[in-house]
């Protein structure tokens, strides 16, 4: 066991984990206002990553620049998801589950058709930049950017939820939909906006993942899983808990990959997830 790379492994885990937290957050956002979750969120992440690829091959756009395009596109996709799927099913969680399974296959096959089954890589000008901290830690710049962006998003989200009418309306729809409508909240509009936000978060997670992750159409399911785990660990609408739990999953993944060989190492995040659920069935942050 090479402990000299431990600090760097931890840092890497934290940084990757924060993007997983973002995927979980995108699901938590949709759950909080609609009571339903789309399982195709991971595939939406893939979609946004391939969009980044196309913008790179077609227009030579750097991933960090192309987010200016993928963000509004994914926000629109999120809004469309609400309008055409969740709203007609009136938030019926089971039906949304099933419909989103269909959506998963649809997205995956469309991606396969367009891009084929091989792996793709999108370089960024910052891909191979490293930042060194002291003598032990060397960090890939993209991961550092990922961490910073996630932190900034968490901050924005916190201020929005706590101190703005918009955030209070979101909480109101979550806590009591009928009362929200009665005091004058346009519940449908809030849902539409939150789904758009959820899509925007997906776009950000996608762009953050691209420089350090190869693209493949079948990766969508993995992203759904790494998003679902923090969601379950933190409680469906505890947004900050979700981001933190994402970090835990990311840490487990990094440490498992570096220090434990073979299948066990690769499945360490899932093992930890199950262990936490066994010992804290109500999630990490719920009181007693």
């Amino acid at each position: 066991m090479d402990l000299s790379i431990l600090p760097q492994t931890i840092a890497q885990g934290v940084l990757v984990g924060s993007t997983y937290g973002l995927i979980g957050l995108s699901m938590g956002l949709m759950y909080s206002v609609s009571g339903a979750i789309s399982l195709a969120q991971g595939h939406m992440v893939s979609m946004s990553m391939y969009l980044v690829l196309s913008l790179y091959t077609g227009l030579q756009l750097d991933p960090y620049v192309s987010v200016a395009i993928t963000l509004p596109v994914l926000a629109l996709a999120g809004a469309a998801l609400y309008w055409f799927l969740i709203r007609p099913l009136s938030g019926n969680a089971i039906m949304v589950f099933q419909a989103s399974l269909g959506l998963m296959f649809l997205i995956e096959n469309v991606l396969l058709m367009i891009y084929g089954g091989q792996f793709h890589q999108v370089p960024s000008i910052v891909s191979n930049r490293f930042i060194t901290f002291g003598d032990a830690m060397i960090m890939k710049l993209p991961l550092l950017i990922g961490f910073g962006v996630t932190g900034a998003l968490a901050g924005i989200l916190f201020v929005t939820l706590e101190y703005t009418d918009y955030g209070r309306s979101m909480r109101a729809v979550h806590q009591n939909e009928r009362s929200a409508a009665l005091v004058g909240v346009n519940v449908q509009k809030v849902r539409l906006w939150v789904f758009a936000m959820s899509g925007a978060v997906i776009a950000i997670a996608g762009v953050l993942l691209v420089p350090s992750t190869p693209l493949h159409p079948a990766e969508g399911l993995k992203y759904t899983l790494v998003g679902l785990m923090p969601l379950v660990l933190a409680g469906m609408s505890n947004f900050f808990g979700i981001l933190l739990s994402g970090v835990i999953i990311g840490l487990a993944e990094a440490i498992g990959t570096v220090y434990i060989s073979g299948a066990i190492g690769l499945s360490l995040p899932y093992i930890i997830f199950i262990l936490i659920l066994i010992f804290r069935p109500h999630g990490l942050f719920k009181g007693h």
Partner: peptide, 26 residues
């Protein structure tokens, strides 16, 4: 037309002030 619903139906995890602010959200 503002309704005070049966059983209060406040937003339980919001503060009193936040509940009142929500009343003027329109």
């Amino acid at each position: 037309i503002c309704q005070v619903p049966e059983g209060r139906q406040l937003f339980p995890s919001m503060t009193v002030l936040e509940n009142l602010l929500m009343g003027g959200i329109a």
